[in-house]
Design a protein around this nucleic acid. Sequence first.
DNA 1: TCTTAAACGAGACGGTACGTCTAGTCTTCTA
DNA 2: TAGAAGACTAGACGTACCGTCTCGTTTAAGA
Lengths: 199, 199, 199, 199
Amino acid sequence: VTDVAKRGRPRSEAARAAVLDATVELLAEGGMAAVTMEAVAARAGVSKGTVYKWWPTRGAVALDAFMRSVNDVLAFPDSGDVETDMVTQVEVLLGLFRDTFAGPFLTALIGQAQTDADLGAAFLERWLNPRRKIAGDVLRRAAARGEIRADVDVDTLVDQIYAPLYHRMLLRHLPLTDDLPRVLVHTVLQGVRLQGVRL
Amino acid sequence: VTDVAKRGRPRSEAARAAVLDATVELLAEGGMAAVTMEAVAARAGVSKGTVYKWWPTRGAVALDAFMRSVNDVLAFPDSGDVETDMVTQVEVLLGLFRDTFAGPFLTALIGQAQTDADLGAAFLERWLNPRRKIAGDVLRRAAARGEIRADVDVDTLVDQIYAPLYHRMLLRHLPLTDDLPRVLVHTVLQGVRLQGVRL
Amino acid sequence: VTDVAKRGRPRSEAARAAVLDATVELLAEGGMAAVTMEAVAARAGVSKGTVYKWWPTRGAVALDAFMRSVNDVLAFPDSGDVETDMVTQVEVLLGLFRDTFAGPFLTALIGQAQTDADLGAAFLERWLNPRRKIAGDVLRRAAARGEIRADVDVDTLVDQIYAPLYHRMLLRHLPLTDDLPRVLVHTVLQGVRLQGVRL
Amino acid sequence: VTDVAKRGRPRSEAARAAVLDATVELLAEGGMAAVTMEAVAARAGVSKGTVYKWWPTRGAVALDAFMRSVNDVLAFPDSGDVETDMVTQVEVLLGLFRDTFAGPFLTALIGQAQTDADLGAAFLERWLNPRRKIAGDVLRRAAARGEIRADVDVDTLVDQIYAPLYHRMLLRHLPLTDDLPRVLVHTVLQGVRLQGVRL
DNA sequence: TCTTAAACGAGACGGTACGTCTAGTCTTCTA
DNA sequence: TAGAAGACTAGACGTACCGTCTCGTTTAAGA
């Protein structure tokens, strides 16, 4: 508990919200290229100084705006069957990528992170790692239950399921199809299953 | 044979080479952020007008510079064993990503392509698709030989092998380790093999 | 007589005419600002090299174009009365300045000459001095006939009659009115007449 | 009294002065051709944006620099004799044109004004018209006193005295000689005097 | 008829300034 | 003390002309 008496004018929550709303709008209209500190401040009706006071870069603003606008879909089913659980979860993510605002937002953020190391680190911490963690837990539970081999490389397994989604979203070489989650999960789990083939 | 008479002063090959060299240098020194049209022209000892005449954006310059500087490693072994061939090829790619200039170059290009659709298309055409094509051919040959299931989804299989490399390179959540190619290829092929488990 | 045999392709009169026509058009459309070597060449359907071969600067092109397009109004009446002759001549010049293309052309040329000494010299030689000469001759004849004082400063007299026309055309502080020639000439001649006042 | 609260950072007077100083220097060194927005900003140690913020064109900068550097010599003597007063004043102007920095400055400005209507208007308002006004007032007072004819066209009279100075400065067909003011004023006033000839 | 030389079109080139935009920082007043 | 307003330095943007330069192509005079 901080009983440090706060002096001076408190931070304006209105300003914060206006900045994040403006960012979402601008990204919708013109992609990440339109999300300039200048434009964000102008659109939000906020001074540039205020934006810089609370966010170091436009990437940071965008990440905050993104995290605020996704209703966190971290809930993971636990039906007792790995494949069912994984497919369900991948389908949720694919829907998010393809059908909601998260798609353009994520591509923009990852693109931006290539020239902004801090943004990359923040993106890992707040978005990617939490999702990898729970997916990994499901696989670890499956290994404990004997559904898949115990010596499996969970990290690589998670990559082989999730990376193709990001890859297609970023490179646009192939569409995100409805059957993709099932195929991705099935092939990989088939490869690490203890007992023979399951069709 | 083009007997189209060439009118006017011919394009300076020296200028073209100077631009691409300068781009490689700048990218090495300061990443894609340092590759500005201004800096490229200055470093190359070429006028800005000339750069803009031949390349629409800095992304286009960078892509050309990249394609010129990779000795095209499209050669694919054909030992008759899918897994060996795929592992070998993925190892080559991983080495390229991790140990050469291609890594920073590619991340920069893909990042840039998120706000430059033309660059994205050119990148697909000149880099990604050719590599996917030959990897896919290897898998299709294996299917024909009966090594893997005939109804396999080749595109997705390729993604599950290659996407993790790009993913780790772009997101930096995990390192590109030496055993990664073997694990990636083995798990996936195991999942689509006709006869049981092969260890 | 130059019996120097001319070898090689002779100068294209068509190109010369096209350049001068284009210059007149461009100046009409956008003032001297529109008369760039680039635009002249393009409009004339002539290569830039050809333009530079025959004219050193755009000012030179413009001066040539101007001199070609004014039907030389050097003819000066000689009625035996200085004032009548001078007024008539100034009226002709004023008409030229105000009602024809010569106005914009001259302001552009004089403006341009402020940063192009060669153009200034050429302008004096080909336009201003010939006109000053014949006006001066009329005044000198009048002095010889005893109409005006013999010790009159002819150059300054000519300036006091003509300079106001150029001044108003260049500075635009006052319009070129119909009665201006009469007033200009009358006042000045009144000041140098031998016998008393003539109304 | 303006009790309008000024918000935001106030304009930097240092920057303004630096710009005008730099402009004077550049014009001295290389004429109006050297006065580019780029060079002005660089010489002044000021960003281009700041220059463009306060002056729309280089002509505008130059006019401001000019108006700041002439100690306004609007003071007009009133000895009671028109001719004496006018000659004195024309001599001052001639000295300014011929012996000081004002000459090159004015020719450059008037030249520039031929392709910049706004500059022309500003030049009239801030330089030419104030000077014409007080010269005209002297002549109007003389008419009221009966020294010259009451129906005189003051504007044209002023032109006949001043225009030759500008004309010789711009066209360089004749030098600005010391006796010019006396001759200019004498001839014209002689032409509009009420009583006969005065030598 | 064939050669030769100048003029021509096309257009690429190194420069340079344009006027605009955004990044960040800084300074002042207001809430 | 936060925030709004906005001026400031810095520097890249993409465009436009500059004047020069190579080309291949004409065009006429001289061999």
